[in-house]
Design a binder for these strands. Sequence first.
DNA 1: TTGAAAGCGGTACCAC
DNA 2: GTGGTACCGCTTTCAA
Lengths: 348, 348
Amino acid sequence: MRYVMVQIPKTPASSSPAPRSVPTSADVARLAGVSRATVSYVLNNTSAVRISEPTRRRVHDAAKELGYVPHAAARSLRAGQSRLVVMPAPAFPVGPLYGRFMTELQWALGRLDYTVVQFGTVGLHGDEAVRAWAELRPVAVLVAGAQLDPQGVAVLKRAGARAVVTLGPEAVEGAHALLMDHTAVGRRAGRHLHDVGRRRIGVVVPAEAGLEAFSQPRLRGVRDALDGTGATVTELPLAYEEGAAARLAARWPDLGLDGLFAYNDEYAMLLMRALQDRGVRVPHDTAVIGADDLMLGRLLRPRLSTVHLELPSGRDLAELVDRAVRTPGLPTERHTVLGAEVVHRESS
Amino acid sequence: MRYVMVQIPKTPASSSPAPRSVPTSADVARLAGVSRATVSYVLNNTSAVRISEPTRRRVHDAAKELGYVPHAAARSLRAGQSRLVVMPAPAFPVGPLYGRFMTELQWALGRLDYTVVQFGTVGLHGDEAVRAWAELRPVAVLVAGAQLDPQGVAVLKRAGARAVVTLGPEAVEGAHALLMDHTAVGRRAGRHLHDVGRRRIGVVVPAEAGLEAFSQPRLRGVRDALDGTGATVTELPLAYEEGAAARLAARWPDLGLDGLFAYNDEYAMLLMRALQDRGVRVPHDTAVIGADDLMLGRLLRPRLSTVHLELPSGRDLAELVDRAVRTPGLPTERHTVLGAEVVHRESS
DNA sequence: TTGAAAGCGGTACCAC
DNA sequence: GTGGTACCGCTTTCAA
């Protein structure tokens, strides 16, 4: 016969100061006087197996008393798959549009019983980052911007990802694509400025890093729209900072521009203010249009014309993900999802 | 007999169409003609064991050929601990301040070799959310806002979290706290308005949900600052929307307020514009001060006074986390980390 | 220098 | 109804 020392908790209610190790299902089983299998059946409500009500209670009580929380890694290891959806956290400063979209997406995926995590990818580059995501064996990966190449898609798929979706300017071989064609934003703006009679167009491009994936297509779109019209397009790099705007505004007479498309409403506000401070009349001397249709544009005087963006709905994207996950051979879909329309206000 | 169309890959180098199952270290071992142990040694550069150069090459080549990526869950299951730091993704609309802070924090934790994930918690409530985080067995949990109670901290610690840090208005029993005392923001603003001679103070409080954790303390701070001075404080709920601002501005004569503190610069801009549109002179009739020191305040005319916030540096927080993780018994620290200072511009 | 094998925590098949 | 147990992928003694 053997005697075993058993640790006895002082008070059942308060936590004991000794930080004993993490309780496992075996601990729950022991405390409830059942097997680990039974614990699993009870806590997962396994329908294929009927457990008596008294036993259920004992298991639940034991789990609660120990503060048992299952171990996701062990579970997904055994299951061979997780419900994890990984998105790289954006490295660029995100605007309110993106924030709303993300919240909606998380909510929608949550309803479909997926777990969404944004993976902090700052400092990891290309292949490294992809491998880091792949290590989590996510069931789906959503990537914004242009941080993924066909090879990266292949790595993710080999690691078990059943859906890889890119959100960005271009499609990537092997992945579903939600094409956000930012050239359309530039085209609309360019056409609009041309329509209101402007021919010497400046385009503000953020000097900040990380925004090129959006700013360059927008610039290109303006060029496309004005190509062959005889209008000129001048690229204007601008840091988001008052001094830089003032310096640019000081060169305005030399630049001789009569139309301006800014990367977005914030940059538009920045430069418009600097221009007004130097006596440039908007829209008389220079017509201005921004993008993103932020609230602040409505509050400026003159009210800022802008290109309104219609982002994909989080629900739609969540459904695409779910469909892709459940349909292994689903051919990669490509959807153009960026609605862009000019909102003509007073500044142009 | 049936004929089936088969897609044939053009180049032999490209991935085979049959999505065979995820390669494991056993596959690598087989292909390299060594044992799984050797694969582990080689791929982890285990220093306690010397592997011959030819073997190393064979293993690396095999791993590359198969596109092998280790399985994080299996690894951390075996290791008994992960380097995972979990943060709930904020449910409220985040401003640029928070974004910068997050980026910096992720970078700093990444340098210390932690993996940071933002956990999408939309739709999960209280205890549910906490359990969802705990299932990942993170080594540390960082929680912004007031989404955690002492019981939640206990659950996380029992699940193996060696550090639980709250960022928010108040400390939580058992967790380290970075106290961001938003009443200080309100106090500074209230004092400032009093200093410039205003006695009937309105305080704009966002009508949007999710911001109460910040807006209520800011309001309370104004009350604290003006308590006993004879000045009055009027709470002004305001939705972030032009119509709401116009309606509030229409009531301005009745309200008879000569000072205004808005929740932040954006709400300040919104209401200031509506007031100006109705002929209210700023600062002559009503002095206005915002908060957060956003760029847009500098661009308004009159330039917007504001309360500048100094957030904790991401590096400092990363160091606190690392210290807590490596020092099991570390007593919970409380740091007040929100610097708040008035930037007096033209609107007050 | 390399291999065999135990075991991390949970699930699910198969007996009893 | 419940328990025994093999197994998911990986690391790490211990032996050879």
